[in-house]
Design a protein around this nucleic acid. Structure first.
Length: 579
RNA sequence: GCGGCUGUAGUAUAGUCUGGUUAGUACUUGGGCCUUCCAAGCCUACAGCCCGGGUUCAAAUCCCGGCAGCCGCACCA
């Protein structure tokens, strides 16, 4: 793990660049160079293979600009605002609520800025550094604001997460999935947060890429059909209690973790495992991977259990690259409230329930004349109240009182009780949501960091061959026309087949291998003089420099099989022993 | 946002304190020579003083401001 050296190569060879460099750059933005862009896309495609193909979720794409109402409902408009205040003397900036809490011990979260300003002046809170006076409290909004439309009075924001784009069309999604839980929907795309001071390069960006899955489930059933297959898989878990007690990370099987209730559900646990499998295949080793449970104090307002997948880095320590949360029904409930849309799902019971119920039937001929204009309202209320309550009131007081603008006494003669049997087939509930949320840029960084190798003079990226940006290099052994010609033909042929192949005739063969290794090309084909005689070439393996001789005619099949992990390089047999 | 340090080709650096010739070197990269398998050698070319202002006859060098990076503080729903 060598951040500086790796970043050097990544910059030099076109993986990561800082954005707007010729205008001296802007913190919190990066460019993916030619190879970085392919690497990132390959990682995102692999993610799709996991979540869309394997898990059976579907991908949607929603706008990156969202209207204010939607983010009001999600809680971002209110919760994404940090109240800030500045010392008039030394210009130090503080979180206003934090400085008050520290001084008074009171919890002032959620109070208006004006109120906070008052509290500061009433309590004579001064700057902890220079004892200066504080300015008025203002809100620092971490969302990028914009205006929608030419006459533009409608406020919009760049979305702070892709998740909301999935919750909002929930009714349509539910219909698409034919009204049945569980189902999952994913979205990959950009999200934006106007960080106060992003300092950690690609780790904290103002514009970043997320891959999020929202899995809607019956709150009563957080199981997963594949769990039995993964029960013996080991995970590095760092539960909240172990963090608080300063104990160690547990390496424990999925089954055991479930048995000890370390993770709140089988489904959540399954998704921890799935994330681990994904990262391991990307080349991140076990020892650099752990699952850290959120402490009760750091849990977001919406979550009931949340685990961060963390990767070890030499530069930044353990960094969060994935968050896997049980968001319960927070989002749907909230959007339902703000939009007045029914975002519930009907869950059918396995057995219909039969209940005996007493209904109140108003005696229309009496209620109408007695209550006149208020009668319709009274009838509606009587339909909703509990019959037992009314009966009780009749027995104790002789009447049941309903308060509208005036109080009305309902007498036994106004109503009749009717006992009925009702069959209840199910109920409408808000589904719970399990959300694996991947920070793609951080994952790309982790992959670069953990695939970076230094051996003697040479450095290379040991990318898994299904994500390597350039898949195969083709070289002439010597820079000679006859060899170059064949090498170029092979390269073009591979390109036609869909492989990203590169040809290079510059420098010596050793230099060409070194250049190819440096950007992590897994295999290199070399055309030599024997090729001219028997139409064979050598195939070189990046990781150990070993070579086998194969017929040109077999290149297509072998390249394809290697890429799909159908064969391994070690099992290839040379076409002859001439090497 | 605050404070400290830093900013010279793609990379690493010399030069900055003490202003003064055409900003030097190595590696990398492109072209060529040579070369029968792992960054060899030779020739050659491309390429740089973070941006803006000021002081001065003259600024990479001194001063001010900005931007970026690193470190510390703060922040990270």
């Amino acid at each position: 793990m060598k951040h500086d050296q790796m970043m050097n190569v990544a910059k030099k060879r076109g993986f990561l660049w800082s954005s707007f460099e010729i205008y001296s750059g802007v913190a919190g933005f990066v460019d993916y160079g030619p190879l970085g862009a392919i690497l990132k896309n390959n990682i995102m495609d692999k993610w799709r293979k996991y979540y869309v193909v394997r898990e059976g979720f579907y991908e949607i794409e929603s706008p990156t600009i969202m209207p204010e109402e939607a983010l009001k409902a999600s809680g971002h408009v209110d919760h994404f605002n940090d109240p800030m205040t500045e010392c008039k003397e030394c210009m130090d900036v503080y979180r206003a609520d934090h400085i008050i809490e520290e001084f008074t011990g009171e919890d002032v979260e959620g109070l208006e800025n004006q109120k906070l300003t008052e509290i500061i002046s009433q309590n004579k809170i001064r700057c902890p550094r220079c004892n200066g006076h504080f300015n008025k409290v203002w809100s620092y909004n971490l969302m990028f604001q914009t205006l929608i439309g030419a006459k533009g009075k409608k406020i919009g924001y760049m979305r702070p997460e892709t998740a909301q784009g999935i919750f909002i069309p929930f009714k349509r999604l539910l219909r698409f999935f034919r009204n049945k839980l569980p189902f999952g929907v994913v979205q990959l795309g950009k999200a934006y947060r106007n960080e106060i001071s992003p300092r950690q390069g690609v780790i904290r960006l103002r514009e970043f890429t997320q891959a999020e899955a929202e899995i809607f489930v019956n709150p009563q059933d957080k199981s997963h059909p594949y769990f039995p297959k993964i029960r013996d898989e080991k995970l590095n878990l760092y539960p909240a209690v172990n963090q608080m007690d300063k104990k160690e990370v547990l390496t424990i099987s999925a089954q055991e973790a479930l048995g000890k209730s370390l993770v709140s559900s089988e489904l959540l646990l399954y998704h921890l495992y799935l994330a681990q499998k994904f990262l391991k295949e990307l080349g991140i080793p076990d020892h650099a991977l752990r699952f850290r449970q959120h402490l009760p104090t750091e849990m977001a307002h919406y979550a009931i259990d949340c685990w961060d997948v963390e990767v070890k880095t030499d530069r930044y320590g353990w960094i969060e690259i994935i968050g896997i949360a049980d968001r319960a029904d927070y989002d749907l409930k909230s959007h339902s409230g703000y939009s007045s849309e029914d975002l519930k799902v009907f869950i059918e019971y396995s057995e219909p329930i039969s209940v005996e119920k007493t209904l109140i039937k108003a005696n229309m001929s009496k209620v109408g004349p007695v209550f006149k204009n208020d009668a319709p309202k009274i009838i509606k209320i009587l339909e909703e109240v509990d019959a037992a309550e009314v009966e009780k009131s009749f027995n104790e007081q002789g009447f049941f009182e309903i308060e509208l603008e005036t109080k009305h006494r309902i007498l036994p003669e106004h109503v009749e009780f009717e006992k009925v049997h009702e069959t209840i087939r199910g109920e409408k509930i808000f589904p719970h949501v399990i959300e694996p949320s991947f920070g793609i840029d951080r994952i790309v960084y982790s992959v670069l960091l953990h695939c970076y190798r230094e051996e003697d003079e040479k450095t290379y990226f040991q990318f898994s061959r299904d994500i390597a940006p350039v898949e195969i290099s083709v070289f002439p052994l010597l820079n000679q026309d006859d060899l170059n010609h064949i090498a170029l033909e092979i390269k073009d042929h591979l390109r036609k087949l869909g492989f990203i192949a590169e040809y290079d005739s510059s420098g010596t063969i050793g230099r060409r291998y070194a250049r190819s290794d440096e950007i992590g090309v897994p295999f290199a084909i070399t055309v030599d003089h024997q090729t001219l005689e028997d139409d064979t070439v050598t195939l070189r393996n990046r990781d150990d420099s070993k070579q086998v001789r194969i017929p040109i005619a077999d290149i297509e099949q072998i390249s394809a099989d290697l890429k799909k992990f159908k064969i391994e390089f070690e099992n290839l047999k040379s076409a002859d022993k001439g090497l």
